[in-house]
Simulated scan of single mutants.
Amino acid sequence: MSLRQTWWGVTLLSLGGVLVVAIVIFLAVVGRYWWEIKQGRGDILAQKIYSGFTASTSTNNNVSADRVILERTDAPYLGNADAEVVIVEFVDFKCPNCLAEAPIIKNLVQKYGNKLKLIIRNFPVESLHPGATQLATIAECAYEEGLYWPTHDYLYNRQSELPATLSDEEIKNVIAPALNLDAVRLKACLANRNTTVRVNRDYADGLQFGVRGTPTFFVNGEKIEGVIPLEVWDQFFSKL
């Protein structure tokens, strides 16, 4: 074997070793992130509680420009519009972790609705959940008709039953009647570029502020990722 062949062999082995290490590191990072999202970063919220995190008034003139973008005034919300605590949740209607958090959030609003404003924004992760963008668009159309929250609940409750992509016939004959939406108006809304723009704006804002998956919360601008247990939210609100 020539010296040149030996050199190429060593080089290829070295590159192969580097590639293996890179793959292992990548899988470790992805695995850790998946675990964090699934388990929730309630520990971070708890740390903020114990370190004296306090809510700043959302109507204060000193609210940061970032929060103005995050806390979209034309987005669906529950609770007190003038609350000092503003929670923004980025959701994907096909995300199992969002489904797990949904009843927790509903309970949270029932318990502390006078103390908080909960804003929902779209972050459909199409690469993981095909059809998520379509569901987000349907929810936006329902919002225009004043039927966002029944639609929100319906899409989560039917998460395991809905196909990857709904056909026009399914939207007309199943979705529209189930949501009390006019099928003709819904079809027009789904075809309207402005509806798509709103969903894309949510997604772009999420990327801008470091959203990597769902659910991701911003509590007065502070990012918290994953499923947050009700008892951790209770701890947070008990300190206010």
Rank of each mutant, 00 (worst) to 15 (best):
V125G: 02
K38W: 11
P130D: 02
T54Q: 14
K115W: 04
L128P: 11
R193E: 11
A183H: 02
M1Y: 13
L27S: 11
T165Q: 08
Q208M: 09
Q159T: 14
Y148D: 02
V30Q: 15
I44H: 13
P177R: 04
E36T: 15
G146Y: 09
M1G: 14
Q235E: 15
Y77P: 04
K172S: 06
E169M: 12
N97K: 08
I37Y: 15
K239Y: 10
V211F: 03
I23G: 03
E169I: 13
T133A: 06
V63M: 09
N173C: 09
R4Q: 14
A142Q: 00
M1F: 15
T73C: 03
T73S: 05
P177N: 07
A136L: 10
I69G: 04
E126A: 07
G16M: 01
I23A: 07
N62V: 12
N192Q: 10
Y156L: 01
F93R: 08
L128K: 12
Q5T: 12
W233A: 05
V184E: 09
I37K: 02
Y154D: 04
V20Y: 03
S56W: 09
P150C: 07
P229T: 08
A178E: 07
S238M: 03
A22K: 14
G131Q: 06
N61C: 15
V29I: 15
L13K: 05
F53L: 08
E36K: 14
G79F: 00
D43N: 15
A75E: 00
F237H: 01
R4G: 12
A100D: 12
T6A: 13
Q39F: 07
K106R: 09
E170C: 11
P229I: 05
A142R: 06
V20R: 05
G226Q: 13
E89L: 03
W34D: 11
T195Y: 07
Q47A: 14
Q235D: 10
Y143R: 12
I119G: 02
V30P: 05
Y156A: 08
L99E: 11
D234G: 05
R67D: 10
L186I: 09
I105A: 07
T57V: 13
K223H: 02
V219N: 01
K223M: 11
L128T: 00
P96M: 06
T216K: 01
S127P: 04
E145K: 10
S127I: 11
G113M: 07
A46T: 05
E71V: 03
L128C: 12
V24D: 04
R198V: 12
T165R: 02
K106C: 01
G52W: 07
V174H: 06
W149A: 10
I25D: 09
I49F: 15
P177G: 11
V10A: 13
W7C: 14
A132F: 02
K115C: 01
S167P: 05
P150S: 04
A100N: 09
A81G: 02
N107V: 04
A188Y: 03
